[in-house]
């Protein structure tokens, strides 16, 4: 539901990452990492991105979204596994004391500028 705000942030961060001497160069793509536990729907994000990127250096940019699986580590037995269903207890020892290693990402990794 808040994908529009997120899309606006992406355009802002991407634009501010372009070096000063290249401020008229179009952005070809934006590479994102989005964890599966993050409350972002990639399809909605793409839709919103296309709207807010209009009339900016990102108007033709493609959004590449790498979805990151939810990986957890058990603090008791060190077991590490990918969470695919909404169960956050250790599969091996049933402990509930776990830490989430990945799956909460919402990062811009890089942008690709058009050749000048």
């Amino acid at each position: 539901m808040h994908e529009l705000g997120i899309a606006m942030q992406i355009v802002e961060i991407a634009t501010s990452s372009i070096p000063d001497e290249m401020k008229n160069v179009q952005v070809e793509s934006v590479n994102l990492k989005v964890g599966k536990l993050t409350a972002v729907v990639p399809e909605n994000l793409r839709f919103c991105f296309d709207i807010v990127a209009k009339d900016t250096l990102l108007s033709d940019a493609k959004l590449y979204i790498e979805e990151i699986p939810v990986v957890a580590r058990c603090k008791d037995c060190n077991n590490e596994w990918t969470i695919k269903e909404p169960v956050f207890t250790c599969k091996k020892c049933k402990s509930g004391s776990i830490e989430i290693i990945s799956g909460r990402e919402l990062n811009i990794e890089s942008i690709e500028l058009a050749d000048v």
Binding site: I6, Q9, I10, I13, A14, S17, I18, P19, L32, L106, N107, I108, E109, S110, I111, E112, L113, D115
Partner: peptide, 9 residues
């Protein structure tokens, strides 16, 4: 040209 950003949205 690729520009590294690595920032949280």
């Amino acid at each position: 040209m690729e520009i590294k950003v690595v920032r949280k949205v």
